[in-house]
Design a protein around this nucleic acid. Structure first.
Lengths: 134, 134
DNA sequence: TCATTCTGTAATTATTTTTATTACAGAACA
DNA sequence: TGTTCTGTAATAAAAATAATTACAGAATGA
């Protein structure tokens, strides 16, 4: 399932897209209304992906490392969701049952198809598009 | 986000699609490897939707009330996910910030678009399609 | 009839996941 | 060289999920 991290990442990037200089994690956290440590953690993921650059130390903070129009939500989705859309319980289904034996593969296939449809749509939306709505 | 209930519902319906008579919740639970009470709860939702019929009492259980080819995964999705795909935190963003003020609407719009894409794909898949894969 | 075996559902507990907090070393600045 | 940022680990709190317990009621059939 799609959790709060996706929304958090979008909020961060949209906010950075509107600000000029370096933005402190505490300021971002104040806008989202979550804990600054969570913001820094998410930013570290976004930084690893090359979307954000960070300046440490006094007056430091983060800013976009690429143009907002270059950040597609599909990329964002992929970065944040390694686990897939459909989270199946970690309980192993009964392998003595035909359905139980095959359901894992069936759900995996389904997950791929659903994600493809979702990603296709998200591919067409960039942070710039969201900025235009603010 | 898409949680385990969707996978559970699919497992239940697929299993019922392969069985002739009434299937007890404990049997289904044994296949999925979850608690029978959860199965009965999910079945009650599927029954309300008209997909399943249940016989109470001794030798009772559930069976499909419609043909597997009539149960679209899009219907299933709608029944189980009233909350939307993207769960945004229940923390209200800072309304004194332009992004904080607009992010709710932006995420809602995004959610609608993403769900449309997902539902379009799920509309084309029925329980029969999954049965063919078992 | 009535013991048995199912269901439905409420209430509680346990587990897991998510979010928040605390803490502190290190970087950059003025 | 003190101040204000970051990064990250560790812990705690809160929320969401799943499991369990419990029990009344329905249908069966010996």
């Amino acid at each position: 399932m799609i959790n709060g991290r996706f929304a958090t990442a979008i909020h961060i990037l949209t906010l950075l897209g509107r600000e000029e200089g370096d933005v402190a994690s505490s300021y971002i956290a104040g806008s989202i209304n979550i804990n600054p440590v969570l913001v820094r953690k998410e930013i570290s993921v976004l930084r690893d992906a090359g979307f954000v650059a960070t300046q440490e130390g006094k007056n430091g903070g983060s800013r976009l490392a690429v143009q907002p129009s270059k950040i597609r939500l599909s990329d964002l989705y992929r970065i944040i969701y390694r686990d897939g859309l459909f989270t199946h319980s970690k309980n192993l289904p009964n392998q003595h049952c035909a359905v139980g034996r095959r359901i894992g593969t069936i759900m995996d296939d389904l997950n791929i198809e659903a994600e493809q449809a979702l990603l296709k749509r998200l591919h067409a939306i960039t942070i710039q598009d969201l900025l235009d709505k603010v």
